[in-house]
Design a protein around this nucleic acid. Structure first.
Length: 264
DNA sequence: ATGCCCTCGCCTCGAGGA
């Protein structure tokens, strides 16, 4: 089973790129971030035509997350991260697919830091921390995938010294990510590729992609019940080089799941 | 120290992104 996460930076404008990539790589499950459109304008029919069922949580202009499943409908289990009824941003959606609980998240950017946006990011991180702990207590296969807007270590940044005061790299945020992982999650990409420079995002400016001046901010966290099934984890770099593309590349993991009764 | 480039909206510039 192939599960991907992809910050599309606008699902309407990105639809040709998204559909092309889906056709090429045929992921079984896709977590999307930054839909930047309302629920009513989500391209359900186009994705259905491409063979994907979908659930989504949109918002005008900003944010927005979705989960796609090839050949089936994701079973919605949650819309919105618990812990703050006043949080109106669309940043979390969750579904059960083939016995796996898949959470798609778009963590706040947090810039400029310090400031209210950075406080919102830290508060969101605390809520994620609490909710993720609840998920671990269930002792089931869980995948938390998305744009965490955090470079976990120096290895995940092209020039760490330039990002020290940035909301994506400040010590508080790196600590929050490390504390989350320490609950018992496996950072899939880093687990299979320790010590390797891997990026998932490159600014549109200054030929960042061509120079490989990037950041690793899109992550997969796996619960202990599914981490042993992890076989591969990689960044799909080719779509980042296409015309009218996102500033993120898709990230993909492959799981080899043990057969269940009734499976072919 | 700042802009660089891009998306969206709704109106051609501003806000936000990372």
């Amino acid at each position: 089973m192939k599960i991907a996460t992809y910050n599309v930076n606008g699902v309407i404008g990105r639809l040709p790129v998204l559909l092309k990539w889906l056709e090429e790589d045929m992921p079984d499950v896709v977590c999307l971030q930054e839909l930047k459109t309302t629920d009513a304008k989500f391209p359900r029919k186009e994705l259905e035509k491409a063979g994907y069922g979908a659930i989504w949580h949109g918002e005008k202009s900003w944010n927005g997350v979705a989960i796609l499943a090839r050949g089936q409908e994701p079973q919605l289990t949650r819309k919105g991260l618990p812990g703050d009824p006043d949080d109106s941003h669309s940043r979390y959606i969750e579904a059960a697919i083939d016995g796996i609980l898949v959470g798609a998240l778009y963590l706040p950017n947090g810039n400029p830091a310090p400031g209210p946006k950075f406080e919102y990011k830290l508060a969101w991180f605390r809520r994620l921390h609490d909710y993720a702990a609840e998920l671990l207590e269930l002792d089931i296969p869980v995948v938390l995938a998305g744009d965490y807007n955090v470079m976990p270590t120096d290895l995940d940044v092209y020039k760490p010294e330039r990002w020290l005061d940035d909301a994506l790299f400040r010590p508080e945020v790196r600590r929050a990510y490390a504390d989350l992982v320490a609950q018992g999650w496996t950072d899939a990409v880093r687990h299979l590729h320790p010590g390797e420079r891997i990026y998932t995002f490159w600014k549109y400016w200054r030929n960042s992609f061509e120079r490989d001046a990037g950041l690793r901010i899109d992550h997969f966290l796996l619960s202990p019940a599914i981490a042993p099934s992890l076989k591969t984890a990689s960044v799909v770099r080719s779509p980042r080089g296409w015309e009218h593309t996102s500033d993120h590349a898709p990230v993909m993991i492959e799981l080899k799941l043990s057969k269940r009764v009734g499976d072919d």
